[in-house]
Structures are given as structure tokens and as C-alpha cells.
């Protein structure tokens, strides 16, 4: 399979790889996917007020899944929570020129953003 240059770039130089303290009140963590399906994404956000000041990811999955989550962290950094939730998987598909069989990778990245934001909101609500 031929990968787009952007997928290759994110795969070779993934942005924002790493982990944050998932117990911190400022951090929201989203883990989506399943090992038996061949992809698991962990996306974390650090939030100040309602702004995402930092984002980190780790992904088990194909090159497209790695690129989708790497791109997602780039896009959400500096965004307000509500803006981050507006990111659609189709924008990721377009940006990375993902083929139809890899659309689920972009869906997973969108889900990971939503899960991380939700986790942060849940933490705030339970304070």
C-alpha cells in the first residue's frame, strides 16, 4: 500500500508522543479501540480554564492510526474544548489523504479527542 507523504511524515516524526499524569485534575485521558482490532489510541490533554494547552498521544496501530492521532494532538493544542470537539474525522481523512480502508483510523482519532475531553469534564464535575 502506498502511504501519503503526510502519513509517512507523521509516522516517521510523530508529534507530541508521550504520557501525562492521568490522575492530575488538569489532565483528560481518552483511550479508545481494542488490541484485538489492531488499534488502540491513548490521547491526553492538559487543560487550563477551557483551553487545551498541551496534548500527548500513544498509539498501537497501523501507520494511518499513528498519523491520525499525531495530527489530532497537533490540531487540538491551543484550542478551546468546544472547538476541539468540532474536529471531524473527515477533516483528518482529507488532511492525511487516507484511503477508504483507513477511514476507521480517523474515526478513532475523533473518538479519542471526545473521550479525553469527556474525561476532563467528568473530573471537573466530580470535584
Amino acid at each position: 500500500m502506498a502511504y501519503s507523504d503526510k502519513v509517512l511524515d507523521h509516522y516517521n516524526n510523530p508529534r507530541n508522543v508521550g504520557s501525562m499524569d492521568k490522575d492530575s485534575e488538569e489532565v483528560g485521558t481518552g483511550v479508545v479501540g481494542a488490541p484485538e482490532c489492531g488499534d488502540v489510541m491513548k490521547l491526553q490533554i492538559q487543560v487550563e480554564g477551557d483551553t487545551i494547552v498541551d496534548a500527548k498521544f500513544k498509539t498501537f496501530g497501523c501507520g494511518s492510526a499513528i498519523a491520525s492521532s499525531s495530527l489530532a494532538t497537533e490540531w487540538i493544542k491551543g484550542k478551546k474544548l468546544d472547538e476541539a470537539l468540532k474536529i471531524k474525522n473527515t477533516e483528518i481523512v482529507e488532511e492525511l489523504a487516507l484511503p477508504p480502508v483507513k477511514i476507521h483510523c480517523s474515526v478513532l482519532a475523533e473518538d479519542a479527542i471526545k473521550a479525553a475531553v469527556q474525561d476532563f469534564k467528568d473530573k471537573q464535575a466530580s470535584k
Partner: peptide, 22 residues
């Protein structure tokens, strides 16, 4: 890059995790 490897290194048994199959 792998969240699974990280979890295993932390001592988490992956079979006990409630995954979101898709």
C-alpha cells in the same frame, strides 16, 4: 509509541481492561 506496552510495563493486565471494540 505503544499505549499497550506502557500499560504492561506499569503492570496492568491487558485482559482486564474494558476495551471499546470497534
Amino acid at each position: 509509541l505503544s499505549p499497550l506496552y506502557e500499560m504492561v510495563k506499569e503492570g496492568i493486565d491487558l485482559s482486564t481492561v474494558n476495551w471499546t471494540a470497534h
